[in-house]
């Protein structure tokens, strides 16, 4: 596997050069935190960023996305006939994505790219992307990614893994897409023979700094009903106010709603982020609601992440241990504690 060495001055120039071929997206300062945004001409991703409040899932799964268009004007030939909204998917380089967020995209892919149905909006956006990941040298105290089949240097789902060595970057090329981006950036200086061992050592050090761990071994061995019917859920969910912050901040939450919006006689059918935390999410037309009580919705979220997903896809849990939900929950709900309770 080829590893390039890029000094920091060349990095800036090369990234901007790659902007001639790719639409660039990366972490930029946003109020008191960072956010993944499309970069303007001449704008560079902040490779010194610590974390983004929201995960980059919105790049492929926008908060609100027009899927179809229609006219309700009876004089239009296509009155009341839905058409796919026209959208362009130019090549995009996602610079500085964290390894656990790239792993999350692979988990979300299991939902949107199935044998029977493919979500064309998600998939076309995904296929247009080249993921240039940035390894995490100093994991945060809420990072438990190494217990979630990923980690600070995980290469899953990445086309390039960039490691900040302090003096410059080492860029490990992981796919032909990654090579194409490096070519477009003009990055071609191969790193010395010790580059691989340097990355391995930094990886080991970063992983050793992760002190937060979860285990799902007993969850795996229990049945869905054993976990669902466990007596702790009302207590576990007691503090939860069902605000949905965790679902929106989560890189692996994929639930959505579909709504129509008509302006005069022209309208759009939109896919919007939705949340299993809301009562309307499951309410039947009759008014009957299978998850009528708030604790049932909290239970659904954790059962989905830590059991249903595991059983359905055999790809581990639906959590990458990024820690966003722990940091942002207004009620101090901690998925690690709930996981421990479930794993008793």
């Amino acid at each position: 596997m080829k590893i390039l060495h890029i000094d920091k001055a060349s990095w800036d120039k090369g990234v901007l050069k790659s902007g001639e071929t790719y639409r660039l997206t990366g972490p930029v300062k946003d109020k008191d935190t960072h956010a993944f945004k499309n970069l303007n001409d001449g704008e560079l991703p902040d490779m010194g960023y610590v974390e983004t409040k929201m995960s980059p899932k919105a790049l492929l799964f926008p908060r609100s996305e027009v899927m179809l268009t229609y006219s309700t004007n009876p004089h239009d030939g296509n009155c009341n006939i839905m058409k796919e909204a026209s959208k362009a998917y130019p090549p995009r380089a996602v610079i500085g994505i964290r390894p656990f967020d790239a792993k999350a995209i692979q988990l979300v892919k299991l939902n949107f790219d199935t044998e029977e149905y493919k979500d064309p909006y998600w998939l076309k956006a995904y296929e247009a992307c080249t993921f240039v990941g940035l390894a995490i040298n100093q994991p945060s105290i809420t990072d438990f990614s190494t217990s979630c089949n990923t980690g600070p240097f995980d290469e899953t789902g990445l086309d390039v893994l960039v490691v900040d060595t302090g003096h410059g970057f080492l860029a490990k090329i992981l796919s032909t897409k990654g090579q194409a981006w490096a070519d477009a950036a003009g990055f071609n200086i191969e790193a010395g023979a010790d580059a691989a061992s340097k990355i391995t050592a930094m990886k080991k050090e970063a992983e050793a700094n992760i002190v937060s761990k979860i285990s799902v071994d007993k969850i795996a061995g229990k049945t869905v009903l054993e976990l669902f019917d466990a007596g702790h859920w009302e207590d576990t969910a007691f503090g939860c106010i069902n605000c949905g912050t965790c679902t929106f901040a989560c890189p692996t939450c994929w639930c959505f709603d579909i709504q129509d919006e008509t302006y005069g006689t022209q309208g759009v059918r939109i896919k919007n982020w939705d949340s299993c935390m809301t009562g309307l999410f499951t309410m039947h037309g009759s008014g009957h609601n299978p998850r009528e009580y708030p604790y049932q919705r909290t239970r659904q979220r954790f059962m989905h992440k830590l059991k249903y997903f595991m059983d359905k896809y055999q790809e581990g849990i639906m959590c990458v241990g990024c820690g966003r939900c722990i940091k942002q929950c207004p009620a101090n709900i901690d998925i690690r504690e709930i996981c421990n309770t479930m794993n008793q």
Binding site: N111, F112, T114, E116, Y117, D119, V224, L225, F228, W254, C255, F256, D257, I258, D274, C276, F281, T282, M283, H284, G285, P290, Q300, M303, H304, Y308, D311, K312
Partner: peptide, 17 residues
């Protein structure tokens, strides 16, 4: 169950797995 997408993606109609 309440449904939106009908193709197993929007996430609201599950009973367990």
């Amino acid at each position: 169950n309440r449904m939106k997408c009908g193709i197993g993606m929007c996430g609201r109609c599950n009973i367990g797995t």
